[in-house]
Structures are given as C-alpha cells and as structure tokens.
C-alpha cells in the first residue's frame, strides 16, 4: 500500500549490486537499487504522467519517446553488464511502488537466478552472413543497355537464361551451405545459440541479402576459440560477407524475464 510511485525496472543483478550510486537511467528521479532476497533490481522512480498504464500505452507508439527509453534502458544494462552478470528486463517494465519491485524479484526468483547462473561469465556475440546480390551472378534481366542482340537465336537466349538461373541457384546453395557450416562451427564454441529470422534489407538498410542472423552466448574463456571459428574474409566465396557484433549483454538469452509489467 503506501507509496504509489512508479518504478521503471531496467535489469536485475545478484546482490550486492553496484558499489556506490549506479550510473545511468534518467527517465525519472535517478537510478537506484532495490534489494530483495539476494537479488538487486536496478530501477528508477518515474513520473506517472508517462509511465502509468494508460499514458504508457499511448507513449509506446511515439517512436521518439520510445527511442529515448530504449537508449536509457540499454545504457543502464550495458553499464551494469561491464561489472557483473546482468539480466535485462523487457523494455518498459514498470512496477507499482518499491513493494512492486520486490514482488517482481520474488515472483521471478527462480527464473532470475537460473538466468544469472546461465549467463555468468558469458557475453553475447552477433554474427550475420550477407549475400551481396551485385557481386553474385546476374539475377535479373540485363538492363536495357546491354541487350544481347548478338545472341542470335531463341535457343541461345533460353540457354543463357538457364545458365544464369543455375548460377543463381548455385550461389544460393553455396550461401546456405556457408551459413550452415559457419553456424555449426560457431555453435561448438558457444554455450547457447539463438537463430533470429534473417533481416529484411528494406528495414535494416544494410545492403545484401541476410542469410544468417544468429546470436551466440560465449563464455569469456572461450572467446578466442569462438573468434577462431570465424572465417577470414578471404576464405569466403565472392559475394558473401560476415558481420560480427559484440560483445553484448546477452539480451538474446534472457528469455526467462518475469512477466510483471510486460503485458498479457
């Protein structure tokens, strides 16, 4: 009962939390910690005008506002992750009062402890494999300029198209094979893996077709082995490109987040 302040909960770490006042936050009155039975929530009192249920629902459709929240969220999680194992909570996890934060910790205790164990000493790496269509054999019809009028007969035309089609098919197969081998090799060096659906070039703005979009949970002592499993760029077929990002706080591996405040 009592205090009806709203608390935005960013992440959970094992107690004791960070020494000294935790850095980051600023969605409200400044980042604080709430301890409960061996778990510490990194949380912040936030204004009800933004974070109470009804306004929050509206706010979540405001992309600029959401971006600000996401940045603050990521900032707190990343900073905490530099010092200790951290379980990030879902974006916009809001509790009612300090009591609510404690309840969240208590109800999620098993899952949070399990996640903290699983994530301890490990970091997330992202690996994407792209096919650059431009470098691959011509897929579409040649642009008006280089019209194949010298090709002569209709049979030649068909044969040429068939060749192009096969070359494209081969390139696709090679890309899929490379993606599979790469993933297998990396998975051997990882404690856990998550395959995300390939990104749409239209949304990501990254050129090329994304054929592998994976996250790997890599124990720190295995990072060298993981990196060794990445092929040097020269080893890849032309038109294939690997992009590695990280290390990240293991967002992709915290599927155990508590339900409270995360909607139905």
């Amino acid at each position: 009962m009592n205090d009806e302040n709203l608390w935005y909960v960013y992440a959970v770490v094992r107690s004791p939390g960070p020494a000294g006042p935790p850095a980051g936050g600023t969605l409200g009155e400044g980042l604080a910690t709430v301890d409960h039975r061996g778990l510490t929530a990194l949380a912040e009192k936030v204004p009800a005008t933004d974070f109470d249920e009804a306004p929050l629902r509206e706010r979540l459709e405001d992309l600029d506002w959401l971006a600000r929240v996401a940045r603050a969220h990521h900032g707190v999680v990343a900073e905490a992750g530099r010092h200790t194992t951290v379980v990030p909570l879902r974006l916009a996890t809001v509790c009612r009062g300090e009591q609510g934060v404690r309840r969240l910790l208590e109800e999620g205790e098993d899952r949070l402890l399990e996640a903290l164990d699983r994530l301890a000493g490990a970091r997330e790496w992202g690996v994407k494999l792209y096919v650059d269509e431009a470098a691959a054999p011509p897929a579409a019809e040649p642009a008006g300029g280089d019209r194949p009028d010298r090709a002569g007969s209709g049979r030649d035309y068909l044969r040429r198209r068939l060749g192009q089609q096969r070359a494209r098919q081969d390139a696709d197969d090679a890309a899929a094979r490379t993606a599979r081998h790469l993933h297998e090799a990396l998975a051997r060096a990882a404690a856990d893996t998550v395959l995300h659906p390939p990104q749409q070039a239209r949304l990501s703005g990254v050129p090329g077709r994304n054929v592998l979009n994976a996250a790997y949970l890599v124990p720190e002592e295995g990072e060298q082995r993981f990196r060794d499993a990445l092929p040097p760029p020269d080893d890849l077929h032309t038109g294939l490109r690997v992009e590695v990002t990280g290390p990240w706080v293991p967002y992709s591996f915290t599927r155990t987040g508590p339900e409270e405040g995360t909607g139905p």
Partner: peptide, 22 residues
C-alpha cells in the same frame, strides 16, 4: 528444337519490348 527456338525468340522479344517500354 523448333519449339525451343520459337519460345526463346518470343521471350527474348518480350524482354526487349519491356526494356523499350521502361
């Protein structure tokens, strides 16, 4: 062979016309 020739020629012309129209 004859069918292939005609089919190929038709497709080739169609592509050609498409380029012109574009």
């Amino acid at each position: 062979e004859e069918q292939e020739e005609r089919l190929g020629l038709t497709l080739m012309l169609l592509e050609d016309r498409m380029a012109l129209l574009r």
